[in-house]
Design a protein around this nucleic acid. Structure first.
Length: 157
DNA sequence: CAACTCGGGAAGGTCA
DNA sequence: CTGACCTTCCCGAGTT
């Protein structure tokens, strides 16, 4: 012991019964036949400056996932879990689609898969951005992460 | 039993 | 060069 993790272990903020108050999933049997998201062209503009107001960092995986979650056309891949703040779940069938898009955005050599992407997701538990919830293919943004994500999203929109 | 999902250790890459 | 942040591999274990 000692010399390991002196931190109080980050924790997810209680999943259940918190008011949604955010989205409002238009849950109504999402047609499984997805296709291509609306944006697609996520090319990187040579060099991203944005050294203005202290922003201008590389896009992180959780930023990307949040944007996917806000895009209705991606509902067949992942979506918010109703009545649970910051909780989202991947579609068992199309989870690799999200991963593939992430991989393309990053310009990886080999195609990204859910397996590999979830490895990165697991590391988020250590840094406290996202936690795994006991349900299959389900994760939860930490409260702080969710808040900053919403601010960035509405600001950059 | 097979297919999936989950959890990490470990090493490799990219970039500011 | 260094650290942050993944990416890729791999394998064991628990579920479905």
């Amino acid at each position: 012991m000692s010399s390991k993790s002196i931190r109080p272990a980050p924790q997810p903020f209680l999943a259940h019964d918190t008011r949604p108050a955010f989205h409002q999933s238009t849950t109504a049997s999402v047609p499984e036949r997805g296709s291509v998201p609306n944006f697609v062209s996520t090319r990187q503009s040579a060099k991203h400056k944005a050294t203005a107001t202290g922003s201008g960092r590389k896009v992180r995986l959780f930023h990307f996932l949040f944007e996917m979650l806000e895009d209705p056309s991606m509902a067949h891949c992942l979506s918010w879990v109703p009545a649970a703040t910051g909780v989202f779940r991947f579609s068992s069938r199309n989870k690799d689609q999200v991963a593939a898009l992430w991989g393309q955005k990053k310009g990886n050599k080999r195609p990204m898969t859910y397996q590999k992407m979830s490895r990165a997701l697991r590391n988020y538990a250590r840094s406290g951005e996202i936690f795994k919830v006991k349900k299959k293919l389900t994760y939860q943004f930490s409260y702080n992460t969710l808040m900053s994500l919403q601010m960035r999203y509405h600001r950059d929109q």
